[in-house]
């Protein structure tokens, strides 16, 4: 997961948390260095604001530090860490938007950008990207989560199932309905123009 799903890395992440539990701050620094960007990107996908995603990612590592004593080292690190990030994001959204964990109307539109590395980027209209941003904001937390993990994190169904502790069939089902809603919202945005 997070492109680091191989056994060696998973063992190392788990071992780091055990070291953190024993008070090893260098282990925490190593874990942060390894996962800080991933944590930020996941939070960004969930809350749609760079500054808050940055704060949430840092808070997630602090929670890891504080919760290390209760971490079961037989369990993989990524789902546990992801749960921390997702819960912090939910709490942030609950405090700010108060309804169905939808994103608040924020002025920050720069959290989702056209990828200049792709040749198709030259033809995609900024309007389409803007529609996508708006549509993503209006999805529920769970729908946005599954879209983020598959579309923007490029995770396989198996990886998502492992991360969210749900069956693979449920991943497929959730993705189907989330995409239906997203496509519907984008059609609506286009229709409004």
């Amino acid at each position: 997961m997070y492109s680091e799903g191989n056994d060696k890395t998973m063992v190392t992440d788990m071992a780091l948390v055990v070291d953190i539990r024993n008070g090893d701050k260098k282990a925490l620094a190593t874990l942060i260095e390894r996962h800080k960007k991933t944590a930020f990107r996941i939070a960004l996908g969930l809350v749609g604001n760079k500054d808050d995603a940055y704060d949430i990612s840092q808070e997630a590592f602090l929670r890891v530090y504080r919760s290390a004593a209760t971490y079961d080292e037989k369990q993989p690190f990524q789902p546990w860490f992801y749960t921390i990030i997702a819960n912090l994001s939910r709490t942030w959204l609950r405090r700010r938007s108060l309804r169905d964990n939808r994103m608040v109307e924020l002025d920050d539109v720069s959290w989702l950008l056209v990828d200049d590395r792709t040749p198709e980027a030259a033809v995609i209209k900024e309007e389409t990207v803007s529609d996508l941003r708006q549509a993503l904001k209006e999805l529920s937390f769970e729908d946005r989560e599954i879209i983020m993990l598959q579309h923007f994190r490029g995770m396989s169904y198996e990886e998502i199932a492992h991360l969210l502790s749900i069956p693979k069939g449920t991943v497929m089902s959730r993705l189907y309905y989330a995409r239906k809603k997203l496509a519907g919202l984008m059609r609506l945005k286009n229709g409004e123009k």
């Binding site: 959290w111 989702l112 056209v114 496509a183």
Partner: peptide
């Protein structure tokens, strides 16, 4: 189409 659009964008 949705996949095409999301494939052309990335997180900041």
């Amino acid at each position: 189409r949705l996949q095409e659009v999301t494939g052309m964008v990335q997180y900041a």
